[in-house]
Each structure stands twice: as structure tokens, then as C-alpha cells.
């Protein structure tokens, strides 16, 4: 187990390193000059060059990359070109909002996706199963920005049940979390359904049924007990889906999280922030996957060797 863990960790570090290389390379291909954005419209060419020198942006890209890595190793992600504040602090100030949103969305995903998936697995290929699967496809197929805007229109504007957007109390988080949660729970219900079907095929379930145990007890106690861990582990894999949705949902709801931070930074080619946010998102995805792997390997030792 330990060896497996160490191996996966080692791999993760390499993946993250790769992410930084690709992001860094891409950012320097963007046809825009961050120095001119910093120097502003009244700057003379001399000012521009002197700022370029001081930021080290006149160095070859590999040199800049190595410097970035060296600073990163010390936990320093640099300072925002535009906001001047350290990237660590900027991300730290916005991460709670994003995590709150994701937490609430995961809760919704569990509340909708899990029961739907379990129920569908017991009604396999019957009309109710079909209906649930089609509905889960509706969730998957719905563009998040449309869901978000429609939720705002109906629940915030028409019925004034929730605020129109923004950050604050519980009321604020419900609509954006629903938007994220609905779309992701589509995947989730399908996944949990197939997981359950897998378990329901096992011999011990047949045995239990043969012994005349109540069908609901079979599903909810015997089967779910074995299916629950991989189902939970799937949340780890969903982090990638969330990383996508967060940019859109935060833009629609004016949610002050790291998605908004990244979006503004891209507009202004604020390279340190873009690097920082990409890295944080990648760490989230990698850790999520790692957790999922570990959880799965506990249940199924074969995973460790594949």
C-alpha cells in the first residue's frame, strides 16, 4: 500500500510539473505584452524596457521558467502584475468562496445523483430507469450558463426567493451551487447506477435475495455498503468537472472566487495569477484523483498492480 501511495504521489508531482511547463509556455505565446499593460498608456519605451528588465521578462523563457519554479519551491507564486499583491494572498482571499460553492454543489450532487442512481439500478431497463437516465442526460447536456441564467430569472427575479447573485449568506450560495450541482449530478447518477449494477450482480446479493431478505434491505444495506466507497470516490474524479464549471458559474453569478480571478487575469495577461490559478486547479484535480485511487484500491487490491 505504501509503495503504491509513494508511486502515485511521485507521478502526481510530475503531472503538476508538466502542467506548469505547458501553462508557462502557452502564456508566452499569447500575442500580448504584459509589460505594456503594467506600464500603462503614458509610458515611454524606456519605462517599458526598464520594467521588463526588473520583472525579468527580458530573459529567455527557460530561464524565466526555472526562476518561477525556484520561487514556487519556496512557496512564492510571485506578485500580480496588475494588483501588485502576492498571488498566494490573492488566491487565498478568493479560495474560500470557491470552496464554499464547490462544497454546496457536491452536497447537491449527492442529494440528487446518488438516490437517482440507486433507484435506477434497481429498476434496470424499466421505464422509470429509462426516464431517470434521460433526465440525467438532460443535466449533462444543459449548458451551465443557461441553467444559471434561468435559475436567476425564475427564482431570484420572478419569485424573489434568492438574491440575484453575489456573495454572502446561505441564500447566495444556493442558486450557483444548484447550477453546478444539477449538471454534475447527471454524470453522477449514471456512474452510481452502473456501480450499483456491478454490485447487485455479485453472488452474495443473490444469496441474500435467495434467503428472502427484503429487497430494499438488500439494496440499501448489503449492496450499498459495498458500492458506497467507489461512489464516494467518484467525487474526487468530478473535481475536474467542477474546475471547468467554476469559471462559468462564477461569471454568471458574480461569485468572487478564483474563477473570476482567473478570468480577469486572462483579460489582462496577468501571468503570475494565471499560473497560480491553473496550478491550484491542477492540484485540486490531481488530489481528487489520488483520493479516488486510494479509496478504490482499499476495496479492490487489484487496482494497485495495474
Amino acid at each position: 500500500m505504501l509503495r503504491f501511495l509513494a508511486g502515485r504521489l511521485f507521478q502526481s508531482v510530475f503531472i503538476l510539473l508538466g502542467v506548469t511547463i505547458i501553462t508557462f509556455g502557452l502564456l508566452f505565446l499569447i500575442p500580448a505584452d504584459p509589460v505594456r499593460m503594467i506600464a500603462g498608456r503614458s509610458a515611454t519605451p524606456q519605462t517599458v524596457e526598464s520594467i521588463r528588465r526588473q520583472l525579468g521578462l527580458d530573459q529567455p523563457i527557460p530561464v524565466q521558467y526555472v526562476r518561477y519554479l525556484a520561487n514556487l519551491a519556496r512557496g512564492d507564486m510571485g506578485r500580480s502584475y496588475v494588483q501588485k499583491a502576492p498571488v498566494n494572498e490573492l488566491i487565498a482571499s478568493r479560495l474560500p468562496a470557491t470552496l464554499q460553492l464547490m462544497g454546496a454543489a457536491i452536497l447537491i450532487q449527492l442529494m440528487i445523483g446518488l438516490p437517482a442512481g440507486i433507484f435506477a439500478s434497481t429498476r434496470r431497463n424499466r421505464p422509470s430507469d429509462k426516464a431517470i437516465m434521460v433526465f440525467s442526460f438532460v443535466g449533462i447536456s444543459a449548458p451551465q450558463f443557461v441553467v444559471g441564467l434561468l435559475l436567476i430569472y425564475v427564482f431570484a427575479f420572478k419569485f424573489e426567493l434568492f438574491p440575484l447573485g453575489g456573495y454572502g449568506g446561505i441564500g447566495h450560495v444556493i442558486l450557483p451551487a444548484l447550477t453546478l450541482g444539477i449538471t454534475v449530478s447527471g454524470w453522477y447518477s449514471r456512474m452510481s447506477r452502473s456501480s450499483m449494477i456491478e454490485v447487485l450482480r455479485q453472488d452474495y446479493i443473490r444469496t441474500a435475495r435467495a434467503k428472502g431478505v427484503n429487497e430494499w434491505r438488500v439494496v440499501l444495506v448489503h449492496a450499498l455498503r459495498n458500492a458506497i466507497l467507489p461512489i464516494i470516490a467518484m467525487i474526487g474524479i468530478d473535481i475536474g468537472l467542477y474546475a471547468q464549471g467554476i469559471v462559468v458559474v462564477e461569471a454568471v453569478f458574480g461569485w468572487p472566487g478564483i474563477g473570476q480571478l482567473a478570468w480577469l487575469a486572462i483579460q489582462r495577461v496577468d501571468i503570475p495569477i494565471i499560473m497560480g490559478v491553473t496550478l491550484v486547479a491542477a492540484v485540486g484535480i490531481v488530489v481528487g484523483n489520488l483520493c479516488a485511487d486510494i479509496a478504490t484500491s482499499f476495496i479492490d487490491p487489484r487496482v494497485r498492480h495495474s
Binding site: 503538476l16 502542467v19 475536474g240 491553473t278 491542477a282 484535480i285
Partner: peptide
């Protein structure tokens, strides 16, 4: 897979 696809 670890890359935030939308950012990419």
C-alpha cells in the same frame, strides 16, 4: 486530464 480544460 489534470489540466483545467476550460482554462486551457
Amino acid at each position: 486530464m489534470a489540466f483545467p480544460a476550460l482554462l486551457l
